[in-house]
Amino acid sequence: MIQALENGNYYHIYNRGINSDILFKEKTNYEHFLNLYDIHINPIAYTYAWCLMKNHFHFIVRIKEIEEIHVEKKILPSQSFSNLFNAYTKAFNKSYNRHGALFERPFRRKQVNFDNYLQNVISYIHNNPVHHKICEHPIQYPWSSYISCLSDKPTKLQRIKVIAIFNDIDNFKLAHEQKSNYFSVENFLGI
């Protein structure tokens, strides 16, 4: 049974291309997906971490309380994610002259219930490119929220709250330097 996204709860949202196919072929694909994310997800959720990989993605979000959602037409949070994936699929299919599904369905979601685990999942998400041997450190990968967490530039990411989860910026950096036990995180997530 598919878990509903409930207001006020934290979730790790993740998915991959159907048959592990490529989701992002070029820079404009990543940019367009993030623009669509801004349109469809920012109105209904706060984002704590994200990473877009060539054939999959990860997000940590907290679904906003009903009174925090300021949109004319109230829709279920899971519908907002479906709208994002459908809009991106249509654009991707048009750009690459393809048809059919792009993402596995249903998208995966795992509720995150406690702070210590939230730290681990944020580190796991930011270190995903390191884990997949794309780079040696998360600061080298442009398609994640790691750099936004260290920056002072304006962002919709919940940067101050993310750093507070780690107590301070030094602990945030330290947690990302340590070799995480990816097996336990992936086992918990069922990846």
Rank of each mutant, 00 (worst) to 15 (best):
A4R: 11
L5T: 06
L5K: 08
E6P: 00
N7V: 04
G8S: 03
Y11M: 01
Y11Q: 03
H12P: 03
N15P: 03
R16C: 11
R16H: 11
G17S: 05
I18G: 02
I18R: 08
N19R: 07
D21H: 12
F24Y: 13
E26L: 04
Y30V: 04
E31R: 05
F33P: 01
L34S: 12
L34V: 03
L36S: 09
D38C: 14
H40Y: 15
N42C: 13
I44E: 09
Y46L: 12
W50I: 02
W50K: 02
C51M: 09
L52M: 04
M53Q: 08
K54T: 09
H58N: 05
F59G: 03
I60L: 13
I60D: 05
I63V: 13
I63S: 01
I69F: 14
I69G: 07
I69Y: 12
K73I: 12
K74N: 14
Q79W: 09
S80K: 00
F85C: 08
A87F: 10
A87H: 02
Y88L: 00
Y88M: 03
Y88S: 01
A91W: 13
F92A: 01
F92D: 00
Y96T: 06
Y96F: 11
Y96C: 07
N97P: 00
N97G: 08
H99Y: 15
A101L: 10
L102N: 04
F103Y: 14
E104A: 13
E104W: 03
E104Y: 09
P106D: 07
F107K: 05
F114T: 02
N116P: 00
L118S: 04
L118G: 01
I122S: 09
I122V: 07
S123K: 01
S123G: 10
Y124T: 02
N127R: 14
N128Q: 13
P129E: 11
P129F: 12
H131F: 15
I134L: 11
I134A: 04
E136H: 12
H137Y: 15
H137N: 06
P138T: 02
P138L: 02
P138Q: 04
P142V: 07
S144R: 00
S145Q: 00
Y146M: 11
I147T: 12
S148T: 01
C149L: 05
C149N: 15
L150C: 11
D152C: 00
K156V: 02
K156D: 07
Q158P: 00
R159Q: 06
I160K: 12
I160A: 14
K161M: 10
K161G: 07
K161N: 13
I163A: 08
I163M: 00
I163P: 00
N167S: 13
I169H: 11
F172V: 05
K173A: 05
E177W: 05
E177D: 15
Q178K: 10
Q178F: 07
K179N: 14
N181S: 08
S184C: 11
S184A: 08
S184Q: 10
N187W: 06
L189I: 10
G190K: 08
I191K: 14
I191Y: 14
